[in-house]
């Protein structure tokens, strides 16, 4: 559990940092450079404390992953050691590289899941924004209610449903429930309303373009930045999801990293918890997320707030 919170904290921190950088950029732009902003000591101190609060656990993971099992509990907390590589090797050797299988599984759940989910969100969001059809209001209200329901409490009903179909303990059991994201559809609707002018759709229709062609060739590219946002949200949500795979999966070869690492800590009373492996595993599991954010950051120009205001 702590692992999930830590990775989440790390991710949140990353989101904060990204938005802080953006804010900084626009801030400088609008001030024109010659106006002096008084340094607010109080708020800076609060922000520094906040930064420390977010960064300290990350630093701890970084340092603790360099220690071997006995050093972890006996040396000073923030004194690094030299066993990082040994730990990575031990983690790789654990049950013939099961950890890397978890990593691939997570990439599958999060990557494929987020891509399909983004596409579904774009399709439904676009439909809700640009078409009029009976029941549209009801569909949208149900969707809004869906945004309010936390995914965690749906895990058990989803388990019971998938058990009926005999799909529990398969890749499908984790992929399928995460394909529909009410929040993603909601964002896509707002973004489609703001970024895709109805006139263009109309003129495409007069040229004889078919509806799906219009969506794929005209609307989808226009929604690009919004879709990157949805993709990132969904990717992080799936990457960090613990409850759903924990309930659905019994075979640890299908586990994502979150569930796998928590299992290493809860081995039962007769086995020692594998602290060093878990810490090293947690560290390595954040790396792809950081990489993803750094790569996609430049596509992520317009965020949720901009879309909301325009709508």
């Amino acid at each position: 559990m702590t692992v999930t919170t830590e990775t989440r904290a790390a991710v949140l921190h990353d989101v904060d940092a990204a938005s802080a950088r953006r804010a900084g950029r626009t801030g400088r732009g609008s001030n024109g450079g010659d106006q002096r902003v008084p340094v607010a000591v109080g708020s800076t101190a609060v922000l520094l404390l906040g930064a420390l609060y977010c960064l300290l656990p990350v630093a701890w993971v970084l340092i603790a992953s360099t220690k071997d099992a006995s050093e972890l509990f006996s040396t000073f907390t923030f004194a690094p050691s030299t066993h990082l590589w040994d730990n990575i090797v031990a983690l790789t050797e654990y049950r013939d590289g099961l950890y890397w299988r978890w990593m691939l599984n997570t990439a599958l759940y999060a990557g494929v899941g987020a891509i399909i989910s983004t596409y579904v969100s774009a399709l439904s969001g676009y439909a809700l924004a640009k078409y009029t059809f009976p029941g549209k209001g009801v569909v949208f209200k149900v969707l809004l209610m869906g945004v309010l329901v936390p995914g965690v409490i749906l895990a058990i009903p989803q388990y019971l449903l998938l058990a009926q179909a005999g799909l529990t303990n398969t890749y499908w059991s984790v992929l399928l429930p995460q394909l529909i994201s009410p929040y993603g559809i909601y964002l896509a609707r707002i973004y489609a309303a703001a970024a895709v002018p109805t006139d263009i759709i109309e003129s495409a229709r007069t040229e004889g373009a078919r509806e799906l062609y219009i969506f794929h060739r005209i609307a989808l590219p226009m929604m690009g930045p919004g879709l990157v946002t949805i993709f990132l949200f969904q990717f992080v949500a799936v990457w960090n999801n613990f409850m759903l795979p924990y309930i659905m999966l019994g075979n640890d070869e299908l586990f994502p990293i979150t569930v796998g690492l928590s299992g290493l800590l809860n081995q039962g009373a007769s086995l020692p918890a594998m602290y060093t492996l878990v810490i090293t595993g947690a560290l390595l599991s954040v790396v792809p997320l950081i990489a993803l954010f750094l790569v996609l950051q430049r596509y992520w120009r317009v965020d949720l707030a901009a879309g909301a205001v325009k709508a």
């Binding site: 303990n169 640890d252 081995q267």
Partner: peptide, 9 residues
């Protein structure tokens, strides 16, 4: 064998 996380889970 499907390895589990200890007895309780």
């Amino acid at each position: 064998v499907n390895k589990q996380d200890g007895g309780d889970p």
